[in-house]
Design a binder for these strands. Structure first.
Lengths: 206, 206, 206, 206
DNA sequence: GATGAATGAGTGTTCATTCAT
DNA sequence: TATGAATGAACACTCATTCAT
């Protein structure tokens, strides 16, 4: 019924599978079962079709980030959720994330492109959150003292890299999510007072 | 004088600045100061021009990795060098790395593409090295016990993300390199010999 | 309220400002505040919209010509009025005249086009009037003896050119109207009764 | 042999016969016997093909104007030549003049268009010449005293209208050229001293 | 080695027009 | 009356690639 949505869905599928450039508006139209001008009736041009997809993906991402309640959770719990989000969103909207992570890199040179805008918005939102989490953790003593800005940038790069890895999926990635969480926990958190104890390497192996 | 090299250099510059698709063979030819067919005399087609660039970048990367002497260095020193390499190579050959990291993502769907081959080779080499480093570190007691495969994958994703971040360079990235090294050090290494360190109960359970 | 008239008015404005080809039916509809098919409800097609405009302009023109009373006025007074009409009509309905004088030239090749029909009608009416005026003037001795047909054609071309000049209006045209009247007066009329005027030998020979 | 010229010639023919908008680049190519991209190899785009034609026409026009030697000829002889030029150029390059006079009117709204530039150049050159001629004639006593600027504008409009009339050629225009010259002569020139005499209307008829 | 000229196969896009509702 | 949706038929234009010279 809703041709607009059908066009959008098909475009998502094709852009994800073949890339933006390799997908033609005619191909999209044919797969939807309409004529090419119908695509241009619903969307101003090919670019705008792409932009709509990107903005949808951004909205989903921002909604997920919104679910992280930095105020009431412990800092590391917030960070852990943040990490999990970056894994689950790829599983949830893989095609849109694939478009975001695969087609956009070629367009970041252009500051006017929707890609650049979406990246900036996503990055700045994430960075603000990471900043708050690290600050709160360091203030409460849960986290060790680190340089917030540089660490936040590093974590962003890491999360970004992890999403990309899932999309490329050149091999099975079992355990990467928990390895990441453990890795960050060990690096960031101070031992909990009163509940920690000395442990040797051999003991851990057991 | 060497037209082939001039074509290659110009192609690198333009592919990096505008992306592969947005760069035309005519544009390359004009900027070099030759005619379009001259490009096709030196290179079979546009794709092969791209492949040569990619392979050059891969070789530079592999040479850098080769410089890491896992046998004689301590595991963390090796890892640290590995991290530094991923920062310095972007500074060294920024255009080629930009092409690699920006144009390739759109092509990884195709298993025959040079991009895919280059990515696989780079990834597998890096993964092997990371595996050896982690193994050696855990064996010597320098590193805590972790799941090698998942951790290596995570580190690859992280290094990849860090290179991308440098290329996109949406903000100044001062201190990210040392933050990364510090972050990994804290997470991976056990307290130095003769001492012990705090471990949380949850970590032991994990 | 009268949608038909609103469409017509908007079409006049846009055709005059941008030309017929450059104006789309969608644009007309949007500026009127209706949908595109509404335009086609009121007018058979874009062409017919254009034709209606042209015929309106023709009617206004013919009405003005009708006001010239050749019988009761002196021949030159008639001619003067005719000249004034060709100046005032452009000021009166500038957009319609602009359409007539700018869009039509490209269509005169086609004998079926409304443009051609309108031009023929306007031209033949004007020519008949000029013929009568010249004839009457020569008969009464007010005008010098000239070749009626060729002179009428020349005067038509002149009037046409003057209207065009006003529409293009590449510079201020102060005084052109009176210069034209004076020019024609001097050329056409004999010295007033009872007097004679100078005539060159070559003129007599001609 | 010279495809570029063949394309240009065909474009001239088709633009003149059908107008710019109604002529497609594919049609031009087919009539020349090449493929469509060949047209774009020789000319940047359809517009530039049009511009080249226009500029050629302008050059021919300016060359003709150049042949008028205001310094050594008498003022009216110069004007007469100017009038004759506006008749003969239409006979000489009718297609190019047709394009100039039929396609351009629709484009004069755009100050950047080649049409506007060509019109301005042609008009200003002609106006300068007319100004000089009238001035010289009035200074020498050959011409009656008139307002130069307004009269020049009127003459431009007349010449323009006469060229248009020839192009449209809705009827045979025998005698219009000499009628125009006679008309201007009578209007502009004073009776020659010493050689003129009184003539009655009836005498002229004889 | 290099070029001028050309092309096949597309590309996104436009636009007047139609028709079921 | 009027519209939302759609379309047929084109359009200018691009680009990697080829080939005779």
């Amino acid at each position: 019924m809703n041709k607009r949505q059908a066009i959008l869905d098909t475009a998502v599928r094709l852009f994800a599978a073949q890339g933006y450039e390799a997908t033609t508006t005619l191909q999209i139209a044919r797969e939807v079962g309409v004529t090419e001008p119908a695509v241009f009736y619903h969307f101003k041009n090919k670019e705008s079709l792409f932009s709509v997809i990107l903005e949808e993906a951004l909205n989903v991402y921002l909604q997920h980030l919104d679910a992280v309640d930095i105020e009431t959770s412990t800092p590391f719990a917030s960070l852990e959720l943040l990490i999990r989000i970056h894994f689950s969103i790829v599983a949830e909207i893989p095609e849109r994330m694939s478009i975001l992570l695969r087609t956009c890199p070629a367009r970041l040179e252009d500051p006017q492109s929707t890609c650049t805008k979406v990246y900036r918005k996503a990055r700045s939102t994430l960075k603000t959150m990471l900043g708050k989490i690290l600050e709160k953790g360091m203030a409460s003593g849960e986290f060790a003292q680190i340089e917030i800005n540089a660490s936040a940038n590093m974590l962003i790069a890491m999360l970004n890299g992890l999403m990309r890895q899932q999309i490329a999926a050149m091999e099975t990635l079992d355990g990467v999510e928990s390895a990441t969480i453990a890795f960050c926990k060990k690096s960031l958190t101070n031992p909990e007072k009163g509940t920690s104890r000395y442990v040797t390497a051999s003991e851990v192996n057991a």
